[in-house]
Nucleic acid binder design. Structure first.
Lengths: 221, 221
DNA sequence: ATCTAATAAAGAAAAAAATCTTTATATATT
DNA sequence: AATATATAAAGATTTTTTTCTTTATTAGAT
């Protein structure tokens, strides 16, 4: 355990990390169909992206392919999953059992992607004691104690944005090291805490802007 | 209406488009506090991002600031909203009234960001006829007729990934031009159809990988 | 009125990412 | 066995995006 076999400390770029799960999803479907080997050009064609991009992305995981054959699909899946850390089950607490929180609880397969939501928290009395997809909803005042005792490092934040910052302060005080922020708020956190923002608004903006640009380019013609 | 006043056809970059809604959200909160003018360094400090980046992003919208003063916050908000097209109410149909679909229906303020979900569709009998946040849930077999009659161009896709492609084919056949894809599937669409992918899996992967890299860098020290 | 400091704006440089090109290799075909 | 071909892998180029630098402007202080 002293020397790492893989000296490939090739820190993958963010765009690459975002593409890898997509490849993985496609590869798993392909494997289910009984396919044994697959080439980068085929993946690129199917996922409508550049084949050399696929080769480059796969190369960062350290997997080796063979000319004229492609990659062994089983080995490829294993390597990507291991590279992304999907084998470890990272335990997480979800905070905010509203609509979005409930949706996240019943979102399928997070566990296959390395994330296991082990409990949910809210302050609404009507929700406490209930459960969703096997995840119990507890009162927020139990968060700090449980997070410390269970050594949970990750929180999924789905509270209303009006209370996002104050809840975040509690998470940080409870030892949370990584926050998946699904609120539109920009969270203030200490340097050692990781925040991953998933803004629905940014995405809807991008979509509408693309549509708008398409309209404009057509009207110009 | 013949010649456009703004010859600034500065097509904004994708990263810029994703940042603008964040600025907007912060600016609106600042405006509520009664602030009248604001400078890029202040925005940058508050949102912990580079001040020159903020200046560049704001410049693409065409807004003008004044040295030593900053930007008029009201004018700034107006300009960004107009640039992003938030004034127009783009009507959309939501397809798939499951957990995520319901969450999207009750997601606040989409309309402020230019998107108005006017109806939802599903095939589950238990859901049809009900409504959520004032949005009625209709049977999927009414989709094509309604989309055409109401000239709805945008669809929000929140169906299970197993049926994502076949539903997409129906959307396209119904004249839908833009799809906000919240399933993990890579959709096959004709060239003229715009797809915006929002993958929860890509985001969770990014978070876990960042945490993993942090752990590794600490253990190396 | 003049000077100073803060800041927008424009431009240059650097960094990052995507795309393109070349090379090498292994399989299938003749 | 020799050749052609598909493909991975490595490298080079181009493009995009971010960061840095410089310049110009303006409010406030002296």
């Amino acid at each position: 355990m002293e020397a790492p076999q893989n000296t490939k400390r090739t820190k993958a770029s963010e765009p690459t990390l975002k593409r890898l799960p997509r490849y993985l999803h496609y590869l798993q479907k392909a494997q289910d169909k009984g396919i044994l080997t697959i080439s980068a050009p085929v993946i690129g064609k199917e996922l409508q992206c550049d084949p050399t991009q696929v080769v480059k992305d796969l190369a960062t995981t350290g997997v080796k392919g063979r000319p004229r054959i492609g990659y062994n699909i089983h080995e490829l899946i294993q390597t990507i999953e291991s590279f992304l850390g999907y084998n470890r089950a990272n335990e997480a607490f979800l905070v905010g059992a509203g609509n979005l929180g409930m949706a996240m609880m019943s979102y399928p397969d997070f566990q296959r992607f390395g994330l296991k939501i082990v409990a949910a928290f809210d302050t609404n009395r009507d929700k406490i004691g209930r459960s969703r997809s096997g995840i119990n909803i507890l009162h927020m005042n139990k968060f700090q104690d449980l997070a410390r005792r269970l050594q949970v490092r990750i929180a999924v934040l789905t509270v209303p944005h009006t209370v996002a910052q104050e809840v975040t302060d509690l998470l940080v005080a409870s030892g949370i090291e990584a926050i998946w922020n699904l609120t539109p708020s920009q969270l203030q956190v200490p340097e050692h805490v990781i925040v991953q923002n998933t803004s629905m608004y940014a995405n809807v903006t991008l979509l509408l802007k693309k549509l708008q640009e398409k309209d404009e380019s057509e009207s110009v013609q």
